[in-house]
Amino acid sequence: MSGTPSERLAAAGLTLPPVAAPVAAYVPAVRTGSYVYTSGQLPLADGKLRGTGKVGDGVAPEEAAAFARTAALNALAAAASVAGGLDAIKRIVKVTCFVASAPSFTGQAQVANGASELLIEVLGDAGRHARSAVGMAVLPLDSPVEVELIAEVGD
């Protein structure tokens, strides 16, 4: 993969969305030293949640993976907003993908792949990361997924 993250993002037909305004007492992202930590990002597009419900009970895993992709794009936007832009992100260190799951659903890792694949598409090898995919009873606003990340940034 060649080019900058911004160039790869554009080549994929994507743009960073506006950073979602917090709905409680937090900020979307914080930079400390060489790292950015994002708050959990939902699959919002044009200010609206793309879907609601539990994966494995009304939300198909493939649909949830697409939601995770959108949430990861929102997390990149939040990280870029405090890093000095997308191209200042040097590496994605860790991703946590929370999946609102029906009790018998065990495919959280496949849902999280939607987020991971987007990060690799945009950042190349620097997008490869450690990851946790966690099943949850419920997420904010009844979202099927929530994604947070830790990124290393340049000076």
Rank of each mutant, 00 (worst) to 15 (best):
G114V: 00
S104H: 06
G127Q: 08
L141D: 08
P61M: 13
D155K: 09
P5C: 01
R50E: 05
R91I: 07
T52G: 04
G124S: 08
A130T: 12
Q110I: 09
P18V: 07
A78C: 04
A21M: 08
L118N: 08
R131V: 14
L42I: 08
G40K: 13
A68E: 02
L86H: 03
K48E: 14
A11R: 15
L42G: 04
M1T: 13
Y37C: 04
D142P: 01
R91W: 08
V145D: 01
V30Q: 12
A109E: 03
A72Y: 07
A83Q: 04
A102T: 07
M136W: 02
A65C: 06
A68C: 04
K94D: 00
Y26R: 01
M136E: 12
Q41S: 13
A109C: 05
V59H: 04
S143Y: 02
L9N: 02
P43W: 14
P103D: 09
V82W: 12
V30C: 06
A115D: 09
A29Y: 06
V55N: 00
E146M: 10
Y37E: 12
P140T: 08
G107Q: 12
G47F: 03
A79Y: 02
T4Y: 05
T4F: 02
A88K: 09
R50K: 08
V147I: 14
L86N: 06
V82I: 15
L14K: 05
M136K: 15
S39Y: 14
G51R: 15
